[in-house]
Design a protein around this nucleic acid. Structure first.
Length: 275
DNA sequence: TGCCAGGAAGCCG
DNA sequence: CGGCTTCATGGC
């Protein structure tokens, strides 16, 4: 399936820190595991992408996953006509980034793992969880084996000693607790998609192991509340070095999360980080 | 070897 | 409320 879009850069999305199961497999080509499926994406040209999926799967799954009905170009354009020089450069540099509509449960667990870890380390942990608790699948087109992300019920029944062997550190009991909360219905992730960002964050923070930053990441990347504004160590760097801690996300009310992604991606580039 | 990573909980004042 | 310490693990 071939898609033409001016604001759709696979490498940028893969390196934007919002998803952890998108990996380079060759020059201009990435693999992605999501929703129990495996696809490959090739950046043919700057605004042209090939996805290894049927037209039906594109229409019903991937178009939504990549948020392709939303016009990111209008956001980039708006930021480029603004007086904020840092955001002008950041949005221009990361203009191919999009906010994915990922599976809420996978996002929830992934960002609990993310705390106090770098991105390569987060990926390793997630793969270990999938290999241990997910289902082994085979993609016929590429011949590749892969593992799905486990369901809430399976993870909720995991033993702490078994998780300990996966080297998740102190996060293992957070993961079991969160999976149980979802499995028994204490947390209804689909309901949190419909309610407001503030309500979602409040509900998420009732889970042990989820603080303000992780809750905002889940809200932004798993529930698609694009007004969320997660502040991690990189964002703290941006806000202090370029804004003297006076940046107000309210200026970008309604889409601050997109602005945040441009900032995050750009500051890491400035500091020479590429994973 | 000490420091850092898409932090959060527990405790103290 | 704000600041400090501790919590596993891996990479540099």
């Amino acid at each position: 399936m071939r898609i033409r879009n001016k604001n759709f850069d696979i490498k940028q999305i893969a390196e934007s820190g919002q998803c952890f199961r998108m990996d380079p497999i060759s020059e201009n080509k990435h693999s992605l595991i999501a929703f129990d499926r495996y696809i490959e994406l090739e950046q043919v040209e700057e605004d042209l992408i090939d996805i290894s999926c049927s037209k039906t799967d594109y229409e019903f799954i991937w178009k939504d996953y990549f948020d392709l009905d939303f016009d990111y170009g209008s956001i980039v354009g708006k930021l480029n006509s603004d007086s904020d020089e840092f955001l002008k450069a950041a949005s221009s540099f990361g203009r191919g980034i999009r906010i994915l509509r990922q599976d809420p449960f996978e996002t929830l667990i992934s960002f609990i793992i993310s705390q106090n870890k770098n991105i390569p380390s987060i990926k390793v942990c997630i793969e270990r969880i999938c290999e241990t608790y997910g289902n082994r699948m085979k993609d016929n087109k590429s011949g590749r084996d892969y593992y799905t992300f486990p369901t809430p019920i399976v993870l909720a029944e995991a033993k702490k000693e078994d998780l300990r062997a996966l080297k998740l550190g102190y996060r293992d009991e957070y993961i079991i607790g969160a999976a149980r909360a979802v499995a028994v219905g204490d947390i209804d992730l689909n309901a949190l998609k419909i309610c407001s960002h503030d309500e979602a964050v409040k509900a998420l923070k009732s889970i042990k192991g989820i603080g303000d930053k992780v809750a905002n990441c889940i809200s932004l990347f798993g529930l698609h509340h694009i007004e969320a504004f997660p502040i991690d160590v990189w964002m703290k760097r941006v806000l202090s070095e370029y804004y003297q801690d006076k940046f107000d996300p309210e200026k970008y009310s309604g889409y601050a999360g997109i602005v945040q992604q441009y900032m995050f991606y750009y500051i890491r580039h400035i500091h020479g980080v590429s994973n």
